[in-house]
Simulated assay, not measured.
Amino acid sequence: MLVCKIKKDFKNFKLDVDFEMENESLGFLGASGSGKSLTLKAIGGLIKPDSGKIILNGRTLFDSEKKINLRPQDRRVGYLFQDYALFPNFTVEENVRAGLREKADITDKLKEMQIYDIKDKIPAYISGGERQRTALCRILVNKPDILLLDEPFSALDEFLKNSIEEEVLNIIRKYDLKTILVSHNKDEVYRMCDNIISISNGKSGEKKETKDFFESPTTLTEAKLIGINNFSDFEIVKDEIFLKAWGIRLKGKVKAHGKICALRSRDIILSEKSINDNSIRIEDYHLIENIDSFLVILNQDDKKYDDLRIEIKKEAYKELQDGPKYFTIYPRKLLFLKEE
């Protein structure tokens, strides 16, 4: 179990993180500069918090009140840096040995990580995937209690990224490692993590199961992190809801809370004919082409309203022979967000 409850003031940025995790894969999802990597560095002992405590499997790594602050090499924390932090003039084998706390035969580990055949090469002459396996091997020879992954795939191309991600997942499962993955890539976190914590402006959110995090966001930060980009203030009058950002009135009862509602772009229906009372005539739209879909941008009056973004698969769009004439919003698809 990991308990992490820390605060640190960087003058122009404040870190305030509070979470617990069991034997799981936990994702930190947030924008660049939100405090994700700083949290990992605090757990790994690379920065010292101002206050709080960090306890790993019953061992106190940091406690401001008890004045405990273990050295990084004494924490049994494996940290995979974004750039792998390999020594450029060391061979693969020397890089792995550099992480050893005591003498040991690493031959089997080099073979297991598929880097035995390149053990005499330096990092400049091996591939990105081989560099990552070398860095992971250096971590695993010390049998860490937790593995910290700091944007581990950001330097890899798409083809290599998928295969390396699978390798890392296999290692996590084989060694039954509790893992924290830092990323701003929502697909990466979805595939690799059991649970997710959002981090925004240095503050951690509530820990949620991954599927629940993506299906039922409850804050504006969570909604933005999963890719939603339609947001509006709203008013409810009897059996109608008025979406102020787009000047749209919808009929139907809704249970609403907070001051903001969100709408996924794929949850808006485009059609050639009116479907129901909440079908609205399209006067004009702008079309953006993606690889597998089109993004339809609507705005009745750009001086008064925000854009409404609707995503539709290319196959579905082509079935609309003369283009979309109506769009329909089902009130039950609206997501109501808590204030942060």
Rank of each mutant, 00 (worst) to 15 (best):
T218C: 02
L243G: 06
D194N: 15
E240S: 13
T219V: 01
E235V: 11
E222C: 08
S200M: 00
N201K: 14
L243M: 10
E215D: 14
F234S: 10
D194I: 09
R191G: 01
A223H: 05
A223S: 15
K211A: 11
T221K: 11
F213E: 06
D233F: 14
V189P: 04
I228E: 04
E240Y: 13
I226C: 05
G205T: 09
E235T: 11
K211V: 11
F214S: 06
L225Q: 08
G205V: 08
K207Q: 10
F242G: 01
F231Y: 15
A223V: 10
P217H: 04
F242R: 13
E235H: 09
G202F: 03
K238E: 14
I241A: 05
F242N: 13
L220S: 06
A223K: 07
E240D: 11
S200C: 00
N230E: 10
S204H: 05
K238Q: 12
I196P: 02
G202A: 07
D239A: 01
T219E: 02
F214W: 09
S204I: 06
N195T: 11
I197E: 02
L243D: 07
P217G: 04
S232L: 08
N229Y: 01
D233L: 14
I199G: 01
L225P: 07
T210V: 12
T218L: 04
D212N: 15
I199D: 03
K208E: 11
T210R: 10
K211I: 10
K203Y: 00
N201Y: 08
I241P: 01
C193I: 00
K238G: 00
S204V: 06
I236S: 03
N229I: 07
F231D: 11
Y190I: 01
T210Q: 09
D194A: 11
T218S: 14
E209G: 14
T210H: 06
D212K: 14
S204A: 13
I226L: 11
R191C: 02
I196G: 03
I196H: 08
S216E: 13
N195Q: 05
K203Q: 07
